[in-house]
C-alpha cells in the first residue's frame, strides 16, 4: 500500500425523515490506504451504504469533507462529480443492475461511452475486462441468459473497464449462493492483489468479510476497526 487513496474528515450525514432528523453518520474520520480491501459490516441502518455513497460521490456529507484520489469530492458540482465518477469509481451492486436490453459486452462498454474512445477501442477494452472476470465466452449473451454469478461478473467487468482506482461494492454476494459468492469474492481478491484495486465492500456476511484485508464495524454512525476473521 502506498499512501492514502480516500479520506473522510469529520463527516456527518443527517437525513430528514418527516419532522425528525436522523443522523446516520456522526463526525466520522476514516483513511483508506491505496490498495486496501476493506469490509464494512454492521446492522441495517447503521450507515454502511451511506458511507459507500459518500465515497462514491453519490451523496454529500452534511458536514465534513470527503477526499478521494486527492480530489475533494464533497464540494464538486453535480456535473463535475458525474464526470469524476465515470473514471475514478467502479460500483458493484447486490442485484447486479445490468441493463437487460444490452448484451454483456455492451453492458461492460457503458462507462466507456463517456470517454472519447472509438467503437473499436471500447469493444477491445470491454473484451479485456470480460476476460479478467472469466466471461469472454458470454460476451454476446443478454443478462437474462446468464446465471446470477455470471451477471455479477459482468457487473464487475463494467466496474473495472474504465480502470478506476476504487471499487465500491454494496453486498456484492447478497443474492448469490455460498459457492458462487466465494468465486466472486476470490475475483475481488484478485482485482485487489493483482490489479491494485482498492476495494470497500459493504456486507452482512462474516464469511464474505473474511476475504478482505481488514474489517470495519459500523454502528450508530461510528466506525470501529475489527480484525478480519
Amino acid at each position: 500500500m502506498t499512501g492514502v487513496l480516500a479520506k473522510l474528515e469529520g463527516v456527518s450525514r443527517t437525513y430528514q425523515k418527516g419532522k425528525e432528523k436522523v443522523e446516520v453518520l456522526h463526525n466520522l474520520d476514516l483513511e483508506i490506504p491505496d490498495g486496501d480491501f476493506i469490509a464494512v459490516m454492521g446492522p441495517s441502518g447503521s450507515g454502511k451504504t451511506t458511507l459507500l455513497n459518500l465515497l462514491g460521490g453519490l451523496d454529500r456529507p452534511t458536514s465534513g469533507t470527503v477526499t478521494v484520489g486527492g480530489a475533494e469530492i464533497s464540494s464538486m458540482s453535480n456535473n463535475k462529480l458525474s464526470r469524476w465518477r465515470s473514471t475514478n469509481i467502479g460500483f458493484i451492486f447486490q442485484f447486479y443492475n445490468l441493463l437487460p436490453v444490452l448484451t454483456a459486452q455492451r453492458n461492460v462498454e457503458l462507462p466507456l461511452l463517456l470517454t472519447n474512445f472509438g467503437a473499436k477501442e471500447r469493444a477491445k477494452r470491454a473484451a479485456i475486462a470480460l476476460d479478467i472476470v472469466g466471461l469472454s465466452d458470454r460476451a454476446r449473451h443478454y443478462p437474462r441468459e446468464l446465471s446470477g454469478g455470471q451477471e455479477q461478473r459482468v457487473a464487475i467487468a463494467r466496474a473495472i473497464v474504465s480502470d478506476p482506482k476504487l471499487l465500491l461494492c454494496d453486498e456484492p454476494t447478497g443474492d448469490l449462493d455460498r459457492e458462487t459468492a466465494d468465486e466472486i469474492l476470490r475475483l475481488l481478491q484478485v482485482l485487489n492483489r493483482e490489479h491494485g484495486k482498492t476495494i470497500v465492500m459493504v456486507t452482512h456476511d462474516a464469511q464474505a468479510a473474511a476475504f478482505a484485508n481488514r474489517m470495519l464495524h459500523c454502528d450508530k454512525g461510528t466506525l470501529e476497526a475489527r480484525e478480519a476473521a
Binding site: N78, R83, L99
Partner: peptide, 12 residues
C-alpha cells in the same frame, strides 16, 4: 436502470 447510468457517470 437510469439511476445506474447516473451512477456510472452519465450526467443529468
Amino acid at each position: 436502470e437510469l439511476a445506474v447510468l447516473k451512477t456510472l457517470g452519465f450526467g443529468d
